[in-house]
């Protein structure tokens, strides 16, 4: 076996699943990078992580109802974002608590839906697919919905950009200047929910935070300007998805078995390496300065 002696395994460029994966991955990487920069700046990583996990509930419910997972992710994440807002996610103190309570309740529901799924539904191992994702399993019919949601999220951020930035840096100043801080925060949370749902369809619900936080956190270590950080984060995100797809495709020829390593593992590992590398770059920059 010529294990991994090629960059692009035979058939890579003709494979439809690969085409869909690259298209969806690119769109999602752009959205998560743009939204993620604000998530990191606002210190809402936990909310992003929770919305990702909560997606499990929607995915399981969708599978129970025989609907596509994306619809489930979007519906449950928007609901959960509203619940978090209601329980008090807008206060910095106790915010994690509000997030955690909603997360706990949603995961409880997920446990039920997954259980019903396996006992009554098709029971075709959807647990693992929902949790860890499978970018190669996305059907090409999903692409329009993904692109539409991606465009909506980016448009929301573009509209909110300036008030959101000020509200992020200093809620007091923003409020004093007449910006409806709570409304802006709630709209941002909605955007975060959309982005998380998109990330969940790409690399799975419980790994979705990687795309959201990783590229953005790495970019914010390299530059402090939000717009530039969004560009850098987008580049990191797209690179991680593309290289991840290539490696996952190659890995069908790797040990220990002939069924490939999970693509989500590669994407997350590459993002994590990117984050570590950004620390190294920053350290060198600081030493030279």
């Amino acid at each position: 076996m010529s294990a991994g002696l090629f960059v692009f395994a035979p058939g890579f460029f003709d494979n439809e699943a690969v085409h869909v994966a690259l298209a969806v991955g690119t769109a999602v990487a752009i959205v998560t990078a743009v939204v993620g920069v604000f998530t990191v700046m606002r210190g809402q990583s936990f909310a992003g992580e929770s919305l990702g996990d909560i997606g499990t509930t929607g995915g399981a419910a969708a599978s129970l109802l025989g609907v596509g997972p994306l619809a489930g992710f979007v519906a449950i994440d928007v609901l959960a974002a509203a619940a978090m807002e209601l329980v008090g996610v807008q206060r910095v103190r106790g915010r994690d608590l509000a997030t955690g309570v909603v997360l706990g309740a949603a995961i409880g529901l997920a446990a039920l839906f997954l259980y019903l799924d396996t006992t009554q539904g098709s029971g075709n191992g959807s647990t693992v697919t929902i949790l860890f994702g499978s970018i190669f399993a996305i059907s090409s019919a999903t692409i329009p919905a993904v692109v539409a949601l991606a465009a909506l999220s980016v448009a929301l951020i573009a509209i909110l950009y300036r008030p959101l930035l000020l509200a992020t840096v200093s809620p007091e100043i923003a409020a004093a200047r007449g910006i409806p801080v709570r409304l802006v925060g709630a709209l941002y949370l909605l955007t975060l929910a959309l982005a998380t749902a998109l990330a969940a369809i790409t690399i799975g619900t419980i790994l979705s935070t990687a795309l959201l936080i990783g590229p953005a956190a790495a970019a914010l270590r390299l530059t402090t300007r939000p717009l530039r950080a969004m560009l850098v984060a987008t580049a990191i995100g797209i690179a991680a998805v593309w290289v991840g797809v290539v490696l996952a495709y190659d890995s069908y020829h790797w040990p220990p078995q002939e069924h490939g390593w999970p693509v989500s593992f590669f994407v997350v590992a590459l993002i994590f390496l990117g984050y570590l590398a950004s620390g190294l770059v920053k350290w060198r920059q600081e030493r030279e300065a």
């Binding site: 790994l207 935070t209 990687a210 997350v268 993002i271 994590f272 984050y275």
Partner: peptide, 9 residues
């Protein structure tokens, strides 16, 4: 968050 997702991956 990053530590968590890396371990989950």
């Amino acid at each position: 968050a990053l530590m968590l997702v890396m371990m989950l991956a």
